[in-house]
Amino acid sequence: MTNDTIEHEHIVRVADQLFYERGIHAVGMDAIRTAASVPLKRLYAEFASKDALLAEVLHYRSGIWDAGIATAAAAATTPRDKLLAIYDFLDEWFRAEDFRGCGFINAFGEMSAVSPAVVEIARGQKERFQRYVSALVDELGAPPALADQLAILAEGAQTTAAISGSPNAAAHARAAASTLIDAALSSRAAS
């Protein structure tokens, strides 16, 4: 890994932290330059604009989400357990001191009116998560509609935990997911 790559990644991590803590509109490139300890000229050499940096931040955040879900699912052996592991991952994340909700929902809420790129990246991340859940539901042998229901529970839990300040939304969503999975499988077996 080159020094340029390390510096590039450092800037992305710093910008991610600042955007997540303070909001995108509240953080200018000068604040990122200061926090990352890089000259402004170097910052703009890496990222032509704040929008370009934000796009990189959202891609970085997507990797964090994917890795967290994969780690939680790694210990699970069945599709049902892998689906429920999503909510275990959420529970751990909601308990983090710096939890401020879903970065994609936050960015979409803040920037969707002015940044088609943010809309595209946020929707893409949500679609990839939906496909992940759908694949597990298919592997489980449950009706496809279950995937939409489980994904909505996960998305709703993120918003609820952020607004309420309570991590309990993950446990409630997990319990609801378990009930939905069992009902879907019972319904499938009865038909």
Rank of each mutant, 00 (worst) to 15 (best):
I6K: 15
E9Q: 15
E9D: 15
V12Q: 09
V14M: 10
D16G: 13
Q17D: 10
L18S: 02
R22D: 10
R22N: 14
M29S: 10
A36E: 08
V38E: 08
V38G: 11
P39C: 15
L40A: 15
A45G: 14
L53H: 08
H59C: 09
Y60A: 08
G63F: 10
D66H: 12
A70T: 07
T71C: 06
A75E: 11
T77D: 13
T77S: 11
R80I: 02
F89D: 03
E92Q: 11
R95N: 07
R95I: 00
R100Q: 13
C102F: 02
S112V: 05
A113I: 04
A113E: 14
V114M: 08
P116A: 09
V118M: 04
V119Y: 01
I121R: 05
G124H: 04
Q125V: 11
R128C: 01
R128P: 00
R131V: 01
V137D: 06
E139N: 08
G141E: 14
P143D: 08
A145K: 11
A147T: 03
A147W: 03
D148A: 13
L150R: 00
L150Q: 01
L150T: 01
A151C: 06
G156E: 04
A157W: 03
T160F: 10
A162G: 06
S164A: 11
A170V: 05
A170L: 09
A171T: 11
H172C: 08
A173P: 04
I181C: 11
S186Q: 13
S186M: 13
R188V: 02
